[in-house]
Simulated scan of single mutants.
Amino acid sequence: MIVKKIQNLFLILITIFAASCSSGTNKNGGSKSHLPVARGEANAILCVMDTSQWNGPIGDALRDIFSEYVPGLPQDEAYFKLRNINPLKMNNILKTGKSMIFVSTMDNQGAQSRAMQNYFTTSSLEKILQDTSLYRLPQKNQFARGQEILHLFGQTGDQLIAHLKRDKEVLRNYFLNIENERIAKGLFKVREKQIEKTLRDAHGFDVQVPYGYDLAKNQRDFIWVRLLDPEYEKNIFVHYRPYNSRDPFDDVLAFREEITSSYMRDIQKPDIFMTLQTENMNIREVNFKGKYAKEVRGLWKLSDISGGGPFVSYVFVDESQKRMYYLEGYVYAPSKDKREFMQEIEVILNTFRSGEELK
């Protein structure tokens, strides 16, 4: 019943915008293939909405969703960079933004809000006024190729705010998934196929390895791949063992310390090893590739305090292999923002496959 209701809701929403948003042509009747290419920096969203609403409670609700700081980073970095666009000042350049949000409510009748309502057909406005459950609709390639737009609307500002607060994670994940897909498209154009073959043949799991990564360590139950640049490092390591105890789930930080103190030691100076910074740890239960997992986001350091940075890790069990896995990605990038580096690391980790997934 729930699935059917969701399907019906999207059918209604698609019908609402069909008159003004044909998937095959632009508003002038031309093919979408002739549209300009969408442009914009990574993790940036243009918010087209009345500036008075942007500076009020609706804008606050949007910032609470999209400008929240990413957990586990050494400095404050937001999920997204938001920029308000006055709808009266929209031009052809701004319309080519990669990611855009169009926000309007029927109870605001200022000049900017009236301009926003021009994006709706008469029948769509009637639907919005009749059904308070309708408040969002995604669109692709409306003004540019590769563009993602999310329309957010409501009868009143308070009504829209209630929807935004209720679906905070859903709305943020919508654009997070879009950004991750964009990253993956460029990241995996060329891959280290020989390393991938080694992981599969010798260890029984897959991870897509982008071009430029090297196999730094390959042991019976531990692998480490890394990309070294003069200004930064990107690293992925995987440890696995037979699953016979839930202890690692009970104390994932102790489990990590056990792994890194054993495998992540300096070859030239073996008394130096990777450990944890105790502050800024974020641990939660998640669904990782369909499996129950513990996710940790936090900060690592070397035991002599000569280096450090952010990491993200997952502990989970593959029942078909009767294995417990520990996956981690971490970055070393002194004096640089870490948000986009860690985003790339997460995209790589999410290509992991094992056991029955490989068949």
Rank of each mutant, 00 (worst) to 15 (best):
residue 207 V to L: 03
residue 208 Q to H: 04
residue 210 P to A: 09
residue 210 P to G: 12
residue 211 Y to C: 08
residue 213 Y to G: 00
residue 216 A to I: 13
residue 216 A to R: 10
residue 217 K to S: 07
residue 217 K to R: 03
residue 218 N to S: 09
residue 220 R to K: 14
residue 220 R to V: 15
residue 221 D to S: 15
residue 223 I to G: 00
residue 224 W to F: 08
residue 224 W to Y: 09
residue 224 W to A: 06
residue 224 W to R: 06
residue 225 V to A: 02
residue 226 R to P: 08
residue 227 L to C: 08
residue 227 L to M: 10
residue 227 L to I: 04
residue 228 L to H: 15
residue 229 D to T: 04
residue 230 P to I: 12
residue 231 E to C: 13
residue 235 N to Y: 00
residue 236 I to L: 06
residue 236 I to N: 04
residue 238 V to D: 01
residue 239 H to D: 06
residue 240 Y to S: 04
residue 240 Y to K: 06
residue 241 R to H: 11
residue 241 R to M: 08
residue 241 R to E: 11
residue 242 P to A: 04
residue 243 Y to L: 01
residue 244 N to I: 10
residue 244 N to Q: 12
residue 247 D to G: 07
residue 247 D to F: 09
residue 248 P to I: 04
residue 249 F to K: 07
residue 249 F to P: 02
residue 249 F to H: 00
residue 252 V to G: 10
residue 252 V to Q: 12
residue 252 V to K: 14
residue 253 L to D: 03
residue 253 L to P: 12
residue 253 L to S: 12
residue 254 A to I: 10
residue 256 R to L: 07
residue 256 R to T: 04
residue 257 E to V: 14
residue 257 E to A: 12
residue 258 E to C: 12
residue 258 E to A: 15
residue 259 I to F: 11
residue 260 T to K: 06
residue 261 S to R: 09
residue 262 S to W: 14
residue 262 S to H: 11
residue 262 S to M: 14
residue 263 Y to I: 13
residue 263 Y to S: 12
residue 265 R to M: 05
residue 266 D to P: 13
residue 268 Q to S: 08
residue 269 K to Y: 14
residue 269 K to R: 15
residue 270 P to C: 07
residue 271 D to T: 15
residue 272 I to T: 02
residue 274 M to T: 14
residue 275 T to N: 10
residue 276 L to R: 10
residue 277 Q to V: 05
residue 279 E to P: 02
residue 280 N to D: 00
residue 282 N to G: 04
residue 283 I to P: 00
residue 283 I to A: 02
residue 285 E to G: 01
residue 285 E to T: 10
residue 286 V to W: 04
residue 286 V to S: 01
residue 288 F to P: 00
residue 288 F to L: 01
residue 288 F to T: 01
residue 293 A to I: 04
residue 293 A to D: 01
